[in-house]
Amino acid sequence: MMNNTKVIQVEGLTKLFGDFVAVNKISFEVEKGEIFGFLGANGAGKTTAIKMLIGISKPNEGKALVAGFDVFTQAEEIKNNIGYMSQKFALYDDLTVKENITFFGGIYGLSKKIIKEKTTSLIEDLELQKVTNSLVGSLPLGWKQKLSFSVALIHNPKIVFLDEPTGGVDPITRRQFWELIYKAASKGTTVFVTTHYMDEAEYCDRVSIMVNGKIEALNTPKKLKEHFNVENMNDVFLKLARG
């Protein structure tokens, strides 16, 4: 039986590309409602690991349960229970705010009535009333990212995966974005996030740092700083990644 408070359980997960070990026997657990920071240098294997967790890439070895489902055999169930947002793929620029919400609601099989309710509450929460019928492409980047995050949560997923959600976003909007993350987490959604902003790493409940396919550190930001005897997460990262 799976422990109810653990929404992600990973053990010895490995991915090979030919001779190259992209992800090397990583193991970790993520609690319900936790904000989990998944850090690492470019090419450390983060993206490969996330792809395995969201069910679009098959691991070579190991075990992983996401939202209670096995990544080897139940990829479809996983997809129904998670939300995903990346910097590259967010929303359709040539659809309006409303059309995007309706479309993504439809993808997850929500009824018309629920989509309508969700649209109204979402637009109110993000204060997008004035641009409901504007094309998403005409919105500032920060607004798009906030909207995109809310859309990723439209089907009340157990876990939401965010791949560098705040790259290039201005500092104020970046903070508003994190307030949305806090809000989602306080309602019990687990947030799994990658970022290159080290101050954002401090906002996470726990942080893991990947180096060359392995998880070299995993703890609360506070404990990590104590352990490496440094001032901030940036220095923790530099110490680890530089070896």
Partner: peptide, 13 residues
């Protein structure tokens, strides 16, 4: 123009 965007903290430094 934005030479460090999307690059990890080590490479940035």
């Amino acid at each position: 123009d934005e030479p460090t965007t999307g690059v990890d903290p080590v490479s940035r430094k």
